[in-house]
């Protein structure tokens, strides 16, 4: 259980509070106006932004002060998810051993992760030789290898077309269910939320509201969500 216990983030004039939790294997979308703090919330969970007050817990353990790499978290950023100077296989290998000293077992794991996301035989390529969708797959494959119980997605597929994005979200769902990970996904597209997430967090007016069933939320959107969606 990932618990945000009376969590507050303050940066200058900006502030955001959250007080809820996410169960293992749960899939949660995070939606709301831009500048509202969606990314900030993810960055805080990932350990890049300190929280001002409150607690952040995983299975009852306090994560404050735990470095990002040691948190039970994998994260896919908006961009720069792959090192351009390393091969795809090396990029994946970093998920298993951060100094890239791989055992033969781990090399096999990398190979099968590539196969799993449909990048078989592309391990020796540089990221620039992959298409946008393939780059996303490579990043997902690494998350698969890391097998952390929480997966954070900060709109990594925003630049992809609708069909490709849908395909990627399905892949994320598969990967998550294989590793039993809880997923928190930032998105600005209600369709993504409906397709992917059982629950949705609305971030607006300085509050990240507790996750609500996605269908119910969109059926009867609160004012802040209506403003965002542009429905009267």
């Amino acid at each position: 259980m990932l618990t945000l216990d009376a969590l507050t983030i303050r940066q200058g004039d900006f502030s955001l509070t959250a007080d809820w939790s996410v169960a293992p294997a749960e899939r949660v979308a995070i939606i709301g106006p831009s500048g509202g703090g969606k990314s900030t919330l993810l960055m805080t969970i990932a350990g890049f932004i300190p929280l001002t007050s409150g607690r952040l817990l995983w299975q009852g353990r306090d994560l404050v002060g735990v470095p990002p790499g040691q948190r039970p978290v994998s994260m896919l950023f908006q961009d720069q998810n792959l090192f351009p100077h390393l091969t795809v296989a090396q990029n994946l290998g970093l998920g298993l051993s951060s100094d890239l000293r791989l055992t033969s077992v781990q090399v096999d794991q990398v190979e099968s992760a590539l196969r799993r996301v449909g990048l078989e035989g592309m391990g020796e390529r540089k990221p620039s030789e992959l298409s946008g969708g393939q780059q996303g797959r490579a990043a997902l494959a690494r998350a698969l290898l890391r097998a952390r119980p929480v997966l954070l997605l900060d709109e990594p597929f925003a630049a992809l077309g609708p069909a490709l994005k849908a395909e990627m979200l399905d892949l994320v769902a598969e990967v998550a269910s294989e590793t039993g990970a809880a997923v928190l996904m930032v998105t600005h597209d209600p369709a993504d939320a409906r397709r992917f997430a059982d629950k949705t967090v609305l971030v607006a007016d300085g509050v990240a509201q507790a996750p609500q069933p996605t269908a119910a939320l969109f059926a009867e959107p609160p004012q802040a969500l209506r403003d965002y969606l542009g429905t009267a």
Binding site: M43, A46, G47, F48, P67, P68, G69, Q70, V73, S74, M75, F77, Q80, N81, F83, H85, L86, Q90, L94, G95, S98, D99, L100, R146
Partner: peptide
């Protein structure tokens, strides 16, 4: 700016960062 967060999220230590990120970049 480009790779600090990625390196941190992968838990790369100082040596690994130097070897695999900083020196090549």
């Amino acid at each position: 700016a480009d790779y600090g967060r990625l390196s941190a999220s992968l838990g790369m230590g100082a040596r690994a960062r130097l070897r695999w990120v900083i020196l090549p970049r």
